[in-house]
Amino acid sequence: MLENPMVAGLGYEETYASPVGRCKECKDLVFQGYEGVIFEDEVFCSTSCLEDHLKKVGVIREI
């Protein structure tokens, strides 16, 4: 008979995602597969953080 390892006290293997870096703009951890983007070898957690960074450095501006 097979027993549930959690109930039997045998435990189970937990898997955690490893961060790929920190966002250049907001400094949050960035995980692969969760909206992160790389622009010119810099890691950003989202396109909105990338946009904010590009506005700050003057690459783009609002009209």
Rank of each mutant, 00 (worst) to 15 (best):
C45H: 05
G11F: 00
D52M: 13
L54S: 02
E25S: 10
E40R: 14
S48R: 02
C49D: 09
E35A: 11
V30H: 07
E14P: 03
P5M: 06
L10W: 10
A8T: 10
V30G: 01
E51H: 13
I60S: 03
H53V: 08
N4M: 08
C23P: 03
G33F: 02
P5T: 00
M1T: 15
P19A: 09
V57Q: 06
D41M: 01
A8Q: 03
G33P: 03
K56G: 00
C26V: 06
G9M: 07
E40F: 09
G58D: 10
L10V: 08
F31W: 03
L29D: 09
Y16F: 00
F39E: 15
L29Q: 04
R22H: 09
R22S: 09
M6E: 14
G21D: 03
M1R: 13
T15Q: 09
C23E: 01
V20N: 09
S18V: 12
F31S: 00
L2N: 12
H53C: 10
D28R: 12
E3R: 15
V57E: 04
S46D: 07
C23M: 04
F44H: 02
M1A: 15
K56C: 03
M6A: 13
T15E: 11
G33R: 06
I60C: 07
K27V: 11
C23K: 00
Y12L: 09
V57W: 01
E13H: 09
S18Y: 06
G36Q: 08
K55I: 13
N4F: 03
D41N: 15
G33E: 06
D52W: 12
Q32K: 06
V59P: 04
G33C: 04
Q32N: 06
T15P: 05
Y34L: 10
C26N: 07
S48N: 04
D52E: 14
E35H: 08
S46V: 01
G21Q: 00
G36L: 06
S18G: 08
H53E: 03
F31K: 03
F39K: 15
H53R: 12
I38M: 10
E14W: 08
F31A: 01
P5C: 07
E14F: 10
L29W: 07
V30D: 04
I60P: 02
K55S: 02
F31R: 02
R61Q: 15
T47G: 12
L10N: 14
P19F: 05
I38D: 12
L29E: 12
